[in-house]
Design a protein around this nucleic acid. Sequence first.
DNA 1: CTAAGTGCAAAGGATTTGCAAAACA
DNA 2: TGTTTTGCAAATCCTTTGCACTTAG
Lengths: 145, 145
Amino acid sequence: MKNIINQVGEKLKAKEYKLTPQRQQILEVMLENKDKHLSAEDVYTLVKRKAPDVGLATVYRTLELFLEHDIIHSVDFGDGRKRYEYGDNSDRHHHHHAICLKCGKILEINEDLLEELEKQVFKDYNFVVIDHELKIFGYCGECKR
Amino acid sequence: MKNIINQVGEKLKAKEYKLTPQRQQILEVMLENKDKHLSAEDVYTLVKRKAPDVGLATVYRTLELFLEHDIIHSVDFGDGRKRYEYGDNSDRHHHHHAICLKCGKILEINEDLLEELEKQVFKDYNFVVIDHELKIFGYCGECKR
DNA sequence: CTAAGTGCAAAGGATTTGCAAAACA
DNA sequence: TGTTTTGCAAATCCTTTGCACTTAG
């Protein structure tokens, strides 16, 4: 993980940004929670545990910065807040979410099931697909009866 | 259209709700803009033209009511506000959006391209699909070069 | 040293809510 | 008449911004 932090540090430095302790802590939190979908508030709470002095505004500003540099990406489950995940957008192309309507659990669907569909959209609508975002709603194994 | 308004009126009355003039105006606006994706503010502006006295809160409350009764449904393009369309959720199942990254135009993709995918998600993840929502990002015919 | 980054508190935008007045059934 | 519904304004929630202070490089 140290490795990744350094890599990201280089990535930022290359673009005239500083890798401050706050940014590093926020990055660590994102790395430690790769599988979660953290809201800004969640990140704030987690970072506070390591560094009680960080401000919420810094968290927002840092997430925005990471977003611009494709260090993280954001998803929106329609619950009124953005959620963030470590990893760049190219991952997202092959990574969708199934949201359980009963327990709220979110499954990662890690296949790209939409290649065929993209071709079809191009053919039928003359629309060049760059990215897509798919949310699936239903019942997970535990909640269906 | 009168027809549809009456139908919806019955639908509401059957459930102990009243079809007030305000609600009727809001419904008319939704019907006159089937193809658009109106925000609450948009609806408010349009309704004001017919009935200058309606309040924004009433618009929000009415949209919420219509949503609960499957008269309209909502979509979220991630721009920080909900958007509303006439038609119930069963339409949505066969109705997706392609969003142009350059001009912002939104194309309706009116095919269900995801039947196969639903089967696969059930098989691979033991997840019963009730609904899905697909957003496609890219360049429309006019904007691609 | 000095531009970039920070924390705080205040501002912002979308949506919700409390409440007294108004209106449907 | 008795609930519902309304309009208004205030409140709320998430996010952004202004500003004086601090810090990384």
